[in-house]
Amino acid sequence: MPDPRYEHAKTLRRDGRAAEASSVLTALLAERPGDIGALYALAVCQIDMGERGHARENLRRIAGAHPDHYGAHYQLGRLSQDEGDLRAAAVHYRQVLAVNEYADAAARLAQCERATAVPPVRKMIEQSYVADRGNLVHSLRLKARHILPLGSIAGVFLALVTVRFLDTMTRAGLEVAYPLVLIVLALLLNVALSPITIYIRTRMYTAQLYDYGMDVSAGVFRRSKQFVWYYQITEPPTYVRRPANYLTHTASLIVSYNDTAATTVRVQLRGFGSPRQVDQIRSYLQSRIPSERLPIRGPWT
C-alpha cells in the first residue's frame, strides 16, 4: 500500500507548494531510502524550486539503478536542454523513446538533433581544408562477460576433472603417464591466466565513435587499428546475437565499408554492451550514414 505521505506530497506540489512537498518526501526517504517513486518526486520538486544540482544528482541515482526509468531520463534531458548541452539531452531523450513514447520526448529529440546537426565531411573540407574526425560521441569496449563464460567454465571443469582423475589413479597405485601430467599443468596454467588474458582483451578490442567516423582497434599480438569515415559505410550496420550472447546478455555489430572505391570489407564491434545498448549504437551509426555518404560519395558507388 502506498505511503499516504507520498500522495500528500503530490497534492502539495499540485497546489504550488513544492517546498512543503519536498520536506514531506525527504522525511519519507529518511525512513525508506530505497523508495524510487519518492526519490523521483523529490527530484521533480527540486527542479520546481530551482535546485537543479540536487535534482540532477537524484535523477542520475535513479537512472543508474533503473536504466529503464524513462521519467528520470526525460527530466535529465530537459535539464541538459535548458542548459544548452543538446548532445547530452539527445542521449537522454533517445533512452526515453527506447522504452516509452513519453510526453514530448520525440519532439524535443528532433529539436536537439536539428540544432546539433554535424555538417558532412565534404563541407567541412571545403570550409577548413582539413578532414577532422570531430568530437568523441561514444567510447566502446569489449565486455569481459562476452568472452568469459564458455571457454573459462569449460577449462575449469576439464582441469578439475583431470586433477580428480590423476588423484584417483595415484591413490590406486597406478602409474601416471607423463604427457597426461603436462596436459593437466597446461590446463591449470590456462585457468590461472584467464583473468589476465580477459582483462587484456577488453582493453585491446575498442571502438571510439566520433562525429565523422569511428576508430576501431582489435587484436593483441596481431594488432590492427583502422579509422572508418561514416561516408565509407556501405549499408546499415548488422546487429548480431548468437547463442553465446544470450548467456552473457551482449550483442555485436558488423559494419561493412569501402576500403577502396571498388572493394568492401567488414569490421566487427564485438560484445561491447547489452542488446539495447548495441541497438542504440546501431541506430546512431545508421543515422550518420545519409548525412555523410550521400554528399561525398555520389551515385557511382
Rank of each mutant, 00 (worst) to 15 (best):
E113N: 04
E113V: 14
R114L: 15
R114F: 13
A115V: 08
A117M: 07
P119S: 10
P120F: 10
V121W: 05
R122W: 11
K123V: 01
I125C: 00
Q127N: 12
V130P: 00
A131V: 01
A131T: 00
D132I: 06
R133M: 02
R133I: 01
R133K: 14
G134P: 00
L136F: 07
V137F: 07
H138C: 03
S139E: 13
L140R: 01
R141W: 13
R141Y: 13
R141A: 15
L142D: 01
L142Q: 03
L142R: 02
A144F: 10
A144K: 04
H146Y: 15
H146W: 13
I147D: 01
I147G: 00
L148A: 12
P149H: 01
P149T: 00
P149V: 02
L150V: 15
L150G: 12
G151I: 04
G151V: 06
I153P: 00
I153T: 10
I153C: 05
A154E: 03
A154V: 12
G155N: 11
V156Q: 00
F157P: 00
L158W: 05
L158F: 05
A159N: 06
V161D: 04
V161N: 05
V161K: 03
V161H: 06
V161E: 08
T162D: 11
V163F: 12
L166Q: 10
D167V: 15
T168D: 13
M169D: 11
T170C: 05
A172R: 06
G173P: 07
L174F: 15
E175C: 07
L180W: 14
L180C: 09
V181M: 13
L182V: 13
V184G: 02
A186Q: 06
L187H: 06
L187K: 03
